[in-house]
Simulated scan of single mutants.
Amino acid sequence: MHTLLVLYPEPTDRAAFAEYYERVHLPLCAKLPGVQDISYALGITEPGAGPYYAMFRATFADGAALAAAMASPEGRAVEADVPNYASGGATVLTFPTTSVPVPG
């Protein structure tokens, strides 16, 4: 499995970020070819209390699937959309991940 993790610093306007992100950006992300799972969090810290306001995580079968998704027209649309809401920019990390079975 391969993970795409995006960390968002504090935006200029939290409400505008959240509204656009949930209404426009996440539906674009859901169209990424080969995406297996998407999760996100808003308001990770109180305003001014930490380095990040939000995070996004998507998983793919492997690094090749992630690379293909981001090179696709859908991936280019996702990337091009970021400046429309992320006034603080974004830090993008990609890495292989291993799942650990949890008993029960």
Rank of each mutant, 00 (worst) to 15 (best):
M1R: 04
T3W: 10
L4S: 12
V6Y: 10
L7I: 04
Y8K: 02
E10I: 10
P11H: 03
P11W: 03
D13E: 05
R14L: 00
R14A: 12
R14V: 07
A16E: 04
F17M: 08
A18H: 11
A18Y: 08
A18G: 14
E19Y: 11
E19I: 11
E22W: 05
E22Q: 15
R23S: 14
V24Y: 10
H25I: 09
L26P: 05
L26H: 04
P27L: 12
C29Y: 00
C29T: 13
P33D: 15
G34H: 03
G34E: 09
V35I: 14
Q36V: 02
Q36K: 13
Q36L: 14
D37Q: 14
Y40W: 14
A41I: 10
A41Y: 05
A41F: 00
L42P: 00
G43Q: 12
I44V: 15
T45C: 15
E46R: 11
E46V: 06
P47S: 00
A49D: 01
A49T: 03
G50F: 14
P51G: 04
P51L: 00
P51S: 07
Y53T: 06
F56Y: 12
A58H: 06
T59P: 05
T59W: 02
F60A: 03
F60M: 06
A61I: 03
A61G: 01
A61C: 03
G63N: 14
A64E: 14
A65N: 02
A67S: 15
A67V: 11
A68L: 04
A69P: 15
M70V: 01
A71F: 09
E74Q: 14
E74S: 01
E74T: 01
A77R: 03
V78W: 00
V78R: 09
E79M: 15
P83Y: 01
N84C: 11
Y85Q: 09
A86F: 01
A86C: 12
S87H: 02
G88Q: 06
G89M: 09
A90C: 05
T94N: 11
T94H: 11
F95H: 04
P96F: 04
P96Y: 08
T97I: 13
T97N: 02
S99G: 13
V100T: 13
P101V: 01
P101Q: 08
V102E: 05
V102S: 02
